[in-house]
Design a protein around this nucleic acid. Sequence first.
DNA 1: CAGTAAACGAGACGGTACGTCAAGTCTTACA
DNA 2: TGTAAGACTTGACGTACCGTCTCGTTTACTG
Lengths: 211, 211, 211, 211
Amino acid sequence: MQSRSPASRTGRPRSPAADAAILAATREALVDLGWSKLTLGDVATRAGVAKTTLYRRWAGKNELVVDAVAELFDELELPDRGSLAADIEGVVLQFASILALPEARSGLMAVVAEATRDEALRERIRASVVDRQKRLVLEGRSRAQARGELPPEPDPASSARTVDLIFDMVAGAVVHRTLVSAEPADEEWVHRFTGVLLRGLAGEAAHPADG
Amino acid sequence: MQSRSPASRTGRPRSPAADAAILAATREALVDLGWSKLTLGDVATRAGVAKTTLYRRWAGKNELVVDAVAELFDELELPDRGSLAADIEGVVLQFASILALPEARSGLMAVVAEATRDEALRERIRASVVDRQKRLVLEGRSRAQARGELPPEPDPASSARTVDLIFDMVAGAVVHRTLVSAEPADEEWVHRFTGVLLRGLAGEAAHPADG
Amino acid sequence: MQSRSPASRTGRPRSPAADAAILAATREALVDLGWSKLTLGDVATRAGVAKTTLYRRWAGKNELVVDAVAELFDELELPDRGSLAADIEGVVLQFASILALPEARSGLMAVVAEATRDEALRERIRASVVDRQKRLVLEGRSRAQARGELPPEPDPASSARTVDLIFDMVAGAVVHRTLVSAEPADEEWVHRFTGVLLRGLAGEAAHPADG
Amino acid sequence: MQSRSPASRTGRPRSPAADAAILAATREALVDLGWSKLTLGDVATRAGVAKTTLYRRWAGKNELVVDAVAELFDELELPDRGSLAADIEGVVLQFASILALPEARSGLMAVVAEATRDEALRERIRASVVDRQKRLVLEGRSRAQARGELPPEPDPASSARTVDLIFDMVAGAVVHRTLVSAEPADEEWVHRFTGVLLRGLAGEAAHPADG
DNA sequence: CAGTAAACGAGACGGTACGTCAAGTCTTACA
DNA sequence: TGTAAGACTTGACGTACCGTCTCGTTTACTG
């Protein structure tokens, strides 16, 4: 989340506890206040830390919230439920349950909005949140290939494009359902969505770029 | 966007030009500054209007930006390209081209983020932006039914659920592709995406709730 | 103390009560806290005014304190005690009694210190505090001339130099006695000092520039 | 300037060079920045010393600056120019030349201002700066008595009062001339001032407490 | 000549105040 | 009554120093 030159060996070392306290306080403040009313002074107070300590480690509200929210996604993992469809449903449900948390709802869309005008922030989100979860798609696919549910990938470039498409469709649909439509992404919805997605992708393998 | 009691007949009437000027100034400011640096004082100045005038018509930044962005979506229409797939590709491309506008990118996600903690704002977005475009899905479907590409809807409740699912998938995927992945939703991508979606939905008709 | 273009006729006018409240609060804070612990935020709070209102009218702590202290000196006046020596003793005692006020002690030397590196501030002090009181020296001299205690001034240039010298000696001695030596400039001291000064000046008239 | 218990005999001794470096850096910073912008962190950096080292030796900015400025006055000495008037002119000119140094101007008045609310600081200034120079007055008087220019002192108490008065008048006038009037205390001015002072004091001897 | 205790540099730490900025309200004169 | 102008209160901003602390390192005296 931040790094100093490894050469700096001198001086008082940064308190490692402060990082964790600040990120936890940030999530707590997101729940209580939401993004727009969250102030760094308040986060510092909640964390029992001076404002300067916070600014020494994060450049601003955006970066702080990205890191605080990103930690929520680290617990995602691909369950082994025996079939591709069931595996995917499981991970989509996990994703939906994270997006149901108020600390994620409030913060995530806001930093995405900020990222539309801030390339570095966009990169940080991609690195901390998005790319970190792409492993799930890859893992799910290779597991399905091992089961014989999917054929091996022929072309790496087209494979990457497919992963990206899947990710945009899954993440986009769940986010839109949860935040814009404000309806729960519950088991029934996830089941329907996964069905449409997998059937569509199955066809995609047959008609990779036709009309 | 605002209403006065019909009884107020006395006094100086509100300038109708001011509304348009303010909304245009808002979009201009969104382009120049983005959501977070946009200030109502600046919008008022750009519109050649006093801050008081602006506050008399909108409750705050959120409401103002929703209205300013909503106008952008009014130009969406369903082209008649001869087939369901082609029609959908056309409207998705239009949607993507709106999301490519900086005034939409900056503002839309931000108000969605705000809406996670503001029921009234969420309703305003749904009314001004989302529901207004659901007509496209309905129109596309009935046109396809007229062409014989789709069977008539049997059950209105399941029909509504399907429309919602389609909308979440289309809007979500385009938004995610555009704003998070920060890749253009160009013809090639839209073609692939539409293919997956329609094939998936075609199967959905056959297995409406299978396991 | 501050002036706006006379053309600004529009907009809400500045509250005239705020000026007085701020200056009084400044003196109060000088008494309670002294110069170095006085903060503009605290002054604003005491005055029942927002910090921005204060900054709209004064550029900073220095300018504010000069104005607050200058008002203290406006009450100085030359008593008519019947003789030059008695008149001067009277005014020196008044001056000493002002310097005995904690709000003057704390603030005056501090702004003089600041003024060593700020030409504009030095000018403001001279205009607000020093020059405003030179009238006392001039008035005392003309009154003494009317009484026949002093001869009429021959040369205006040398006259101005003499006034400056008197002022430096009177103000300097009282300030040093009060603030550095930290002894009271009481009647006995003022009497001795005035005696030395007047006898010295009487001689000066006879030997205006001897070697 | 600081003292440690004589019992501390063990451990690394304080660097004697650091004291000198810090005081010199303080004067340098006074010249460059003036009192109010001088920071102890900056002084430490200029002295090539850590902030902790500085705080181990001085309690704060006030004490540090008093010591740094006091050193400037140590070079004052009474020249033997053959007459009381000439001797005094000489020493007043020296005093004026010190007050003309920016490091003295900036710092001296500021610490005097601080001293109005800090008894210990006032005592430190008196010990380091004022009393140290009173020797000049005493020395000048005894030399003049040796020359027969002044009668021997009859009463020690009245003598001390006279020394104090002289000191307040000399130091006060030069300081006011230099810092408030912001005019140079040059030879011509010093000559006029000294003339007034000595003639006044000569009379004082004749009328020690009359009107 | 090893042990020890203090001084030292570096820099993080909890604070306080800074001066600025925007939000949203209020007060004026004018239309 | 609506409007433009701009003063008003409020509260957060991000920065700068304060004076303290905690490190790892250096340097004299001492046993």
